[in-house]
Every structure is written in C-alpha cells, then in structure tokens.
Simulated scan of single mutants.
Amino acid sequence: MLELPESLAAILDGEEDDGEGLLPGEVFWRDHYMWLNECGYLLRPRYRPDWVPSWTKTKKWPESCEDGLLQLDSDLMDGERKSDGKVVVFKKISKSRHPYEEEIGRFLSSGPLASDPHNHCVPIIDVLQVPDDDDLTILVMPLLRKFKDPPFDTIGEVLEFFRQIFEGLQFMHHHLVAHRDCMVLNYMMDPTALYPRHFHPVETDRSRDFKSKAKHYRRTSHPVSYVIIDFGISRRYQSSEMPPLEPPILGGDKSAPEFKKSAEPCNPFPTDVYYVGNFIRTCFLEVYHGLEFMRPFVMDMVQDDPEKRPDMDAVVDRYAELLTSRRTRSLRGRLAKKRENPVAGIFRRVSHSIRTCIYIARGYNPLPTPRAL
C-alpha cells in the first residue's frame, strides 16, 4: 500500500497549513518561540518566527528535510534545554479541562518522592505558565519513547517491564493517587540506555541530526527504565477520603466491567488494577507465546467484581513469587508472536540463539533491571 507523505496526508485530512507550511496546531508554538527561548528552551528551526523552509527553491520533498517534519499533536512539542542540550518534551495543559494534572505531576516529582526507586512516574522538569493565556500551563518533561519500540527480545525483558509498571502503580496507590487511565498509550520508557546517541523526537528511527538511522542497543545488555505518564484524569486523595467513590470516567480502555453495569460512583483503585491487568492480557497474553503461566494471575486482576480483585500490594507480592519460580532458561527465551511468519521465525530463532550465547558469556541478567532501581 502506498503511503502518502505525512504533510500531504495531514492536509488531505483537513489539517491545512497556515500558508507558511505550519499546521494550525503548530502556530501556537511558533508564536511562543521567543518566550520559550527566554525561559531557557529552544524549539527546532521549523518554529522560529523567521523560518524559511529549507526546501524553498529546491527540488527536495519537505519530508526529506528535518524542518519538514510535522507535529500533528498540537498539545505536544519537543525542544532542547539551552543550559545542557537535554532534549525535552512540552505538554500544553488546559487547567479548566484538567485541573489536577499539574498538581499531581508536581507532587509525584517532588522532594523524596522524586528519588524513591519505586517511583516510575514521568518526572516533571519544569512548569511554565503561558504568559498570554491564564488557562494554559506547559509541563516540561524528558523525551520518552514508546515502551515496545524497539521490540522486546526475550521473555525476561517483558517480565521486567511488568515488574516496573506494577511497582510504579503500587507507588502511586501508596501515595493515594489513582491513575484512572493506565492503558497501553500511557506506558513509556526512558530511552537513554538504548539510545545513548539519541534519536530525532519526531522521526524516531532517525538520528537526532536527521542524517542517519538511529542506532540502539538491546534491553538485556542495556537495561531500560519504564515510566507511567499522563495524569490528565488522575486523582489524589487524603487519607480521610479513603476509600474514595468517583463517578465513572472513560479513558483509553473503555472495557472496565464496573462502568458497564451502572453509573454509580465506585472506587478508582480497583479499576486501575483492572486496567493494567487488561493491558497485559490484550497486548501480551493474546499476542505472544511463553506467557501463559501469567494467565491465572492476570485473570484475577480483571475479575468483574472490583472487590474480588487484588490490590496493588498483593499484585506486586504475587508477581515477585511468580518471577522466583521462573527458570533462567525460560527467561532468556525468545518472545515470539503467535502469528509469526514461519520463515522469518527460523531466522529470528537462529539470531536469538547467537545473542543468548553472548549474553550468557558476558553474564547479563535475564531480568535486565536498571542499576538505578
């Protein structure tokens, strides 16, 4: 199937540019380029007020140029911290729509919580109040990458991912924060271990300077830290409010049984347990071989009756027992899709066997836990 260039596809979908090559959602960032610069952050050349497209008067396609890369999500933008060159992401928040997101993000990134090894929540680097709109705040966060890009290689790598997200959600619950939307899109990873030379924040398979492919390592040799993001519909409670009762609210996963039965207020903490269990069931147990031993455990997490689900303390404890019961050989096993091309599978098994021998010779842990944890 022929794929349209991203900019052309966006225009055909109704996202016409402003006559200067920017989409409507990008205009905000161009208009605030100088203010962000004064705050210590630099946007890409595309968003400079005096930007002239590099393909002007040439035969180049815009998609072949770094400044031709579009930002289709108007609430997000990448940038660079001028003091040290760190690549960051800006998230624009409407306080009237998401009144708790900034507060919860600050809380989970504050004081001793920020350095707690059990904290797997995205850190907030800075909070900026938009000067010409009292309703808009910008959260500054580190550049992250999708949790499964590049793909997992071994069963042990996936089990370490599960361990970290269980621990992260347990941490949130210990501090009386219910995420309420912990679904597939809200798990990310810190890419610095896999991509020490970084990558382009929009075209993530390219190098940061857009001149070559982005090179990366594998998780077993370079363990990864995973983070939970997006507290837009999260809530934080006081001990006097426990257990809380909240009206149903639908996030990315709309399958929670308690929301289908009635509109009565319910406790959001068991719903979090359902969400993370359903994520593992649908994105891993139903897709990959080698994880069937987790099915009884996951099915407990997704029971229809919220009161019968384990809390996150029980989830973490039981999962730790599951991990200790796994043999090293099984942890080093290849994570293979159930619907895999047989021919491709042969080549992948051979290359995996070679890598496994190298991992064993170098003493790499089959459960690749980052040193900082």
Rank of each mutant, 00 (worst) to 15 (best):
L4K: 07
I11G: 05
D18I: 03
R30P: 12
M34I: 03
E38I: 01
G40Q: 02
R44P: 10
Y47T: 03
S54L: 01
L69N: 09
K82H: 07
S83K: 00
D84E: 07
R97A: 14
H98K: 13
G105E: 12
R106C: 15
L108Q: 06
S110V: 07
A114I: 04
P117Y: 01
H118L: 10
N119Y: 13
V127M: 11
D135T: 06
D135I: 04
R145M: 13
D149N: 05
E160M: 05
Q170C: 01
L176K: 01
M183H: 09
N186C: 13
N186R: 07
Y187I: 08
Y187H: 08
M189C: 02
R197I: 03
T204S: 10
R208M: 05
V224D: 09
S225Q: 08
V227D: 10
S234E: 08
S239N: 06
E241N: 05
P244I: 07
I249G: 13
K254V: 12
P257W: 04
C266D: 12
T271K: 03
V273M: 14
G277F: 13
G277T: 06
R295V: 09
R295P: 14
F297I: 00
D300A: 05
V302Y: 05
Q303N: 11
D305Q: 02
M312Q: 01
V315I: 09
Y319D: 00
S325A: 00
R327V: 10
R332M: 13
P342R: 00
V343Q: 12
V350W: 10
A361M: 14
P366K: 04
P370Q: 06
R371C: 02
